[in-house]
Structure formats: structure tokens, C-alpha cells
Design a binder for these strands. Sequence first.
DNA 1: TTGAAAGCGCTAACAG
DNA 2: CTGTTAGCGCTTTCAA
Lengths: 318, 318
Amino acid sequence: MTKITIKNVAEKAGVSVTSVSRVLNNRGYISDDLRTKVMEAIDELNYTPNEIARSFYKSETKSVALIIPTIQNPFFSELAFHIERELSKTGYHLYIGNSLNDSVNEREYLKMLKEQRVDGMIVGSHNIEIEEYDKVTGNIVSVERKINDRIPMIESDNYQGGKLATERLIQQGCRKILCISGSQTVDSPANNRVVAYSDVMQENHLKEQILEIPFAESAAEKHKRIQEVFSSEIEFDGIFVDDDILASYAMNEASKQNQKVKIIGFDGTKLMQDLFPELITVVQPIEEIAKKSAEVLLRLIKHEKVENLYTLPVKLNQ
Amino acid sequence: MTKITIKNVAEKAGVSVTSVSRVLNNRGYISDDLRTKVMEAIDELNYTPNEIARSFYKSETKSVALIIPTIQNPFFSELAFHIERELSKTGYHLYIGNSLNDSVNEREYLKMLKEQRVDGMIVGSHNIEIEEYDKVTGNIVSVERKINDRIPMIESDNYQGGKLATERLIQQGCRKILCISGSQTVDSPANNRVVAYSDVMQENHLKEQILEIPFAESAAEKHKRIQEVFSSEIEFDGIFVDDDILASYAMNEASKQNQKVKIIGFDGTKLMQDLFPELITVVQPIEEIAKKSAEVLLRLIKHEKVENLYTLPVKLNQ
DNA sequence: TTGAAAGCGCTAACAG
DNA sequence: CTGTTAGCGCTTTCAA
């Protein structure tokens, strides 16, 4: 079972490889007769062009990589889904890299660009120093992190999200609102969710209470941290949680303890909205983020002009 | 910013490209002096070999594709995660294809094999006629579907899962057990979950009640179907549900209606166990399925001997 | 221990 | 309209 190449097709059809190539790519002048002969040979031999040879010649792979912390997180799986579907429309294929927030892994994936395995990269995992990116050449789009002026960023309007959530809680009568968020140490636009919370609380002369539960902690630890909140002496009648999964933990805990507390989450993945229809949450436009990321990357690849920043609107689901 | 090639390195180091290649691949005899010169040139030029050129020469891409219905489903995202992590250990990269259970998409992804874009493929989406696969050459591993004798299958012990679940419900005192499952029309080993349910019910002289809710239906429709079950005249004191997401709908509905009913689900993804700690479910060994799929595919690629079928054990989580 | 040269499969000048 | 040929970047004979 040896591989069929364009040469075999040319021989079979009794023409040159160039002519076969012309038929394949529909380029230049080809007579109907020649085309027919070639098509027949292709059919008979069940030939498909070797895409790696094409990629090699054209220095263009029609592949893109998406680097995220883990595809197991519903936010990233929804993002990945829409990016893949969008790219597939133009014949692009998508690699997935789970960095697990480890810079070693992240660097490994980033190498794919330099190795010319991919035409571009969407990075949604951010564990490499900004400076390292300055040395990297190649088409990159960043999701939710400003890397440098050369790399466009797609984000949702985090500040607006935090504002909507906090204002809604206040409007629902909450006065002691706890804010639970991922670690604020990393420089991420997601921090603006908490900034907005603080601003709104201050405007309303309410006391801020912020609790950080690092994103990287295990599920078991997070459950424990949430339980501790409920059994501590912290007083609250509302919680704004940075993340729907944590929000669901909090909802469960509140109902277990029979404690009345309004909760608003963040992300609004289809899955979480589906599993917890009663959860009020700030919905990020994940599909739009995905499509915009793909679109901007494809524009970069085609050397078309792109903006430096795309901020997409959020809303409450209820 | 023109691309640096092996030729530039050779010129800079004052040696032949062969020697550079030898250093890169650590093959053949190279003097320390030559090695040093080459290494220096590589460093100075910040050179990385073009992997597409390598792939092309070696007819080996170090890439694999995974085809699934949708990465948005927690089962498949967990599967994909572990497959990617496993493959990365040997320098392989993973493409993801979301077929959406559309045979057109599936065929498109399958083409990547013939185009020689990938060294192999793991198929977890099954919407193409078995006969079509007979014509496909290339390394394929199937997850949860027998395709043909040439394509190894990895599955979990579905029958045992159905048995464990049904027996547990009976043991918990249920006598009117409803079984809710995906459509049984497709030929899938998952059907054995229901077969086992039937067998156990018959052994215990209990009446079988089976309800099919096709996998492909929308979330909203599924919610509705579950609600209908609870408001219908069907009597049940226990439900065995084919799928944790549906099981969670049923749990929610039961609690809303304040109806006492034991529920056992299926899949046991980390995410669903985490979100619904109280849900009893049949845990598929997803990580093992993933690792085995990757391992078997890599063996196929290396022309090593593999089994035809791998059935992995399941268990109840509680 | 090193280098020259062929060739992987394809596309694109360039010639006819 | 069609064919000859060079060359994409790399690895690997083969020869020195």
C-alpha cells in the first residue's frame, strides 16, 4: 500500500505533474480534455494531495493552535468549540494545548509557532513573562490579557460585568455583599470585575469584603474554602462570585445551611446556565469572543489590518 | 524578518548543512569542535528547525486528531484533556474536531488522515457508515464503537455499569425503576447499559420502563422531556439515567416537585461529580480510556502489535 | 569525521 | 494550452 502521489496521477493520465497540479488548484489554462483525463486518473487512483507537501512549499499550514489552562473548564471548552467551528469555515484546523498554567507547557506550545507548525496562535493561558513574547515572532492573538502593543487582545467588558452584578445585588436589597474572586496578583483584565465591585460599593457607601480563592486551587480545596465562608463570622446577604463554578458551590452550601443569600456568578457558559437555570450570572459573550479571536487571527495571517483591542459587551442572564 | 534556515546556520558556522543536521539530530560522528561551532551559530541566529520540512521529509507529522461530537460536553472535554496530556509526553500534538454528529463534518476531519496531515486519528464521533471506513487507510482508534476488525476499540464496561446502577437502586428499595437513555437506534456499546438494566429487572421480576431521549436533542427539549416524565402518570421510585447531565435535570426536577426518587447517573466526569457531589453515578474511567486510546494509537503508528478490543472497568462513585 | 548531492511531493516561473 | 525544471528545508545515503 504505497502512497499515491501527483506523479502517479500524471503517469496514469499521460500528462505532466504540472498539469495535474493545475487541475487540482484550478489555476492557469487547462483544456477540457486534459482536465477530464486528470480527473479520471485521480478518481481511479483515489488520490488526495499531500497537504504537508503543500504546507511545506507554501509555508502555510492552515493550522492554528489554541493554548488554554485546561479544556476541562467549561469556559474554555465553549471557547474552543466556537473557535474550532469558526476556523473550520475557512479550512483551518485547530490544535489544543492544555498548559495547566505551567509556563513550561506554555512555552512548549508557543514553540509550535517558531517551528512553523501553525500559522498562528490564540493564547488564553498566561503564565509566561510579557518580555518573552517580545522575542516571539508570528501571529498571536491574546484572550483576556494585554501582552504588548503588537498582540491584539480580545476581552469581555469585565468592569461592566462587575458593575452589573454588584448593582443588581444592591437593587435586590443586599447591603453586606461579599466578593469572591480568583487571585488578583496576576495582571489580568478580569481584575476589573473586582475593581467595579469596589467602585459600586463605595458609591453606595457600603463596606467592601473581598475574598480571594486562587483559580489554581483544587476543587476540593475550593469547596472547603466556600464552606469556611459560610461557617465563619463574616456577615453577608449577597455574594458576587467571579466564576460560575464557585458560585454553584456557594449556592449548594447556602441551600444546605438553609441560609438566605443572593448569589451572582460570572461567565455564563451554556453548560452552567443549563445545569443551574436559577443561577444569576454575568454572561460573557463567549461565542463572540471566540469568533472575534479567530477572525482577528486570520486577518493577521493575511496581513490585514486589525485593531489592538476588542472589548465585547456582557449582560446579566436574568 | 526573513526565516532562518539550516543553510544560514551552516554558513554562519562555516560547515555543511549535513553537519548542522547531524548536530540537530545528534546522529553520526561529529567532533566537539564542530558541534560547538554549530551550537553557537544556532544560538546567535536563534534558529529553530522547520518542523513542516521535517514532517514532509519523514512523512510523519507528530500530530494526531481527535474527532468528537462536541468538546462542550464534559465527557469529551475530559477525554480530550487526558488524550492531549498523554500525547504531549511523546511530543505529539492534538487537533480537535467537533463533528456535531454531522457526517459531513466527520468526513471532513477524516480527510486529514488521507491528506497526511496527521499520523493517526481517534474517533469518538460515529456518524459515518461502517463501510466507509473500510476504504480508509491510516491509523485509527475508535472510542465506544466497533467499526471493523482493523480498527481497535476502547470502551468502558457498559453492561457492568448498567448492572451496578440497577442493582444499587433495587438494593436501595426501589421497585419501580425507570430507565432513561439516549436513542438506542445507533449501534453503540452504550446500548449495553440498557440491556443490563433489562436483564437485572427481569432477574428480579420487576417491570421494565424505558424512555428514550435522543442525545442530539437540545438542552431545552431535554429539560422539557424530563419535566414531562415527572408530571406524567408514569410511576417510579428510582431512575437510572444514561447520562449525568440528564440525571442532574432529573434531580433538580425531583427536588422542585418535592418528589422522593433515587437517581443514578452515568459518566462520572470530574466536573459533574464536582458540581453535584450528591449525585450517585456510574463512573467511566475516562482518564484510562484516554490514555489507552493514545497508547494504542501510538502503537499503531509505530507498527506495534495491539489488541482489537479494550474494555475498561467502571464503578459506582458512592 | 565531514561534505556533496539526491530527494521527499508539491507549486510556480519560464519556455515552448 | 502544456511541459521542463527549480526549489521550498530537511535528512540521509554515499563518497571522500
